[in-house]
Nucleic acid binder design. Sequence first.
DNA 1: GGAGTCGGTTCGGAATCCGGACCGACTTGG
DNA 2: CCAAGTCGGTCCGGATTCCGAACCGACTCC
Lengths: 151, 151
Amino acid sequence: MHDDPAVRPCSIQRSLDILGDRWTILIMRDAFRGVRRFDDFRNDLEIARPVLTDRLKRLVEAGVLERRIYCERPPRFEYRLTPMGAALSPALVALMRWGDEWLSVDGPPTVLVHDACGHPLDQAFVCWHCNETFTQSGIASRPGGHFADTT
Amino acid sequence: MHDDPAVRPCSIQRSLDILGDRWTILIMRDAFRGVRRFDDFRNDLEIARPVLTDRLKRLVEAGVLERRIYCERPPRFEYRLTPMGAALSPALVALMRWGDEWLSVDGPPTVLVHDACGHPLDQAFVCWHCNETFTQSGIASRPGGHFADTT
DNA sequence: GGAGTCGGTTCGGAATCCGGACCGACTTGG
DNA sequence: CCAAGTCGGTCCGGATTCCGAACCGACTCC
């Protein structure tokens, strides 16, 4: 199931060890939307209760969500993004943009726009050293050789 | 399992309808790496044969991979990325970068670098209209309201 | 004190996944 | 000519995981 960690410790593999099932990424999407409580996740996702319990527990153990009490006397909990969880936003945005572009029948249902000018945003790579921006080419990878060529 | 498409046709949901199981994203990662043949996927992933057959078939049906003959007389097939599949690279890169940053014990095992100068690349948003680059702030979303705020 | 809320846990049945065996079409070696 | 190997699959029985439904504990509200 996983690569030899000494030879090719693939980070996609490791990310998917946390995120890689049918529900977890949707749970994270909801967390980004502001969903925090057990029943709100449940109502939004129509996920079975035991599965949601398990996924939230795993995400907390992974350090992606934080379980904190928001009500003392009947003990009630909420699940919030940690910095590690919030750092997933580029991945979720990329998934959303891909779905927008390739999977929507009547145009992108949700578009990220530049707050100042209102024009749509693109996702790209930046070299802060050269102050250059790319979408596809001009990229190399060291030392693993992934993604050097996508054709 | 899915949102009401009239009210909130979430593109992450739709993307995950194609990619959202334990194996599919890893299959796509391998495809980006250049893996094309059934047995190569199998050897790399240690996935059960019937499951791999099913996943490849689904990815072909979804339009993400293309199944083409590379040998006529014993009919042999290979699976190649379509443009739609290649467009997933930002999402896979984002996942890889997240794993690099948060999940590796001894520093990023693979880093994307700028081909010209060798410095590491960052992933960001670009407004081609204003020629501005952001990593987090200055972003809004219309009309769904996703990802406007990550705290 | 009965109903409602919230965040679970505990069941049995259903779907899915797994490894291993088998298969068809062909090539290669002896 | 026959045996073994390759490649891309399918078929099978057992194990895991998922699901919906019911239940539960602690509390609040009426």
